[in-house]
């Protein structure tokens, strides 16, 4: 008998079960056969994930951009190494044909490589030296916004999901993401990629569970600084915008072209520093 992998959450670089002990079954596509029992993350799991993401901010943002770039590239390398496992999950749980599954993994890798390259470039594209009318050096740099929450609520798309992750973390943000329900089982190979890429603990935290149960917790959490709703449900979108006002979260709505500079800029703040010029 083959040993089946127990699929768990990914929080603070570890693989805990949900503290709630709850699970939901993912079936093999078009059958009633259970593929795996996944954790149904609770409000407490989400809070633990945010704590881990917050704790990881300083270390991750404090790394050199070159270093972050290499770690994202490493993630792409590890994804290539786990290609067979991704393909297997995609075919079994989502009914992909082998060709589509392979293409999907290609896109995931592509997205990570793209944002790996941006980690040390967006600063120059978006930064500026400001020609102020006075004896001052004034310059503007792009900085991470902080802890980003992501609710992925579109049809599963590995390329887009990896673009969301890459675009958030390449600039030094940390992430708490709720996996798309339909592709929840992908959390297994994905979190193993994250765990083996020299990515510091807590930079990316992945949860599986119920969108309806958790989205309001994302919306009202005071230590999430920016909230991305990659989804199209009008009610959820507007609920989240209302909840975001609690701590003036930057709410970022659904965006289709995720492999782009604009995607990255959704999670950026601009800091302007002044200093006198004189003798």
């Amino acid at each position: 008998m083959k040993i089946a992998k127990t699929i768990k959450l990914f929080i603070g670089g570890e693989f805990p079960r949900t503290e709630s002990g709850r699970s939901f079954a993912v079936t093999v596509f078009n059958t009633n056969n259970v593929y795996a029992n996944l954790c149904q993350a609770s409000r407490k799991d989400l809070k633990n994930a945010v704590s881990a993401a917050k704790a990881a901010l300083g270390g991750w943002g404090g790394k050199t951009a070159y270093n972050r770039s290499q770690i994202l590239y490493r993630m792409a390398e590890m994804m290539e190494g786990k290609r067979a496992e991704f393909v297997d999950v995609l075919m079994k749980t989502l009914g992909y044909f082998n060709e589509d599954a392979q293409k999907s993994v290609d896109q995931g890798i592509e997205s990570l490589v793209y944002f790996s390259g941006f980690a040390d470039k967006y600063q120059q594209v978006m930064g500026s030296v400001n020609p102020v009318a006075g004896p001052h050096h004034s310059f503007t740099t792009a900085e991470p916004v902080g802890v980003v929450g992501l609710i992925y609520d579109l049809k599963f798309n590995l390329g887009d999901l990896c673009a969301q992750i890459g675009s958030v973390i390449c600039s030094g943000n940390t992430l708490v993401a709720l996996m798309p329900f339909e592709g929840s089982a992908v959390i297994a190979p994905l979190s193993e990629v994250l765990a083996t890429s020299d990515l510091p603990k807590g930079v990316v935290n992945l949860l599986t569970g119920s969108r309806d149960e958790l989205y309001k917790v994302f919306g009202s959490h005071m230590e999430i600084h920016s909230l991305k709703y990659q989804g199209q449900d009008q009610k959820i979108s507007s609920d989240l915008q209302v909840l975001a006002t609690g701590n003036l979260k930057r709410f970022v709505g659904n965006k289709s072209d995720s492999v782009s500079l604009e995607q990255l800029l959704q999670f950026i703040e601009y800091k302007t520093v002044w200093h006198p010029i004189g003798l």
Partner: peptide
């Protein structure tokens, strides 16, 4: 830094 309350239209 070493100044305060400086504003300029070129400076975000």
């Amino acid at each position: 830094a070493n100044t305060y309350n400086k504003f300029d239209p070129t400076s975000p």
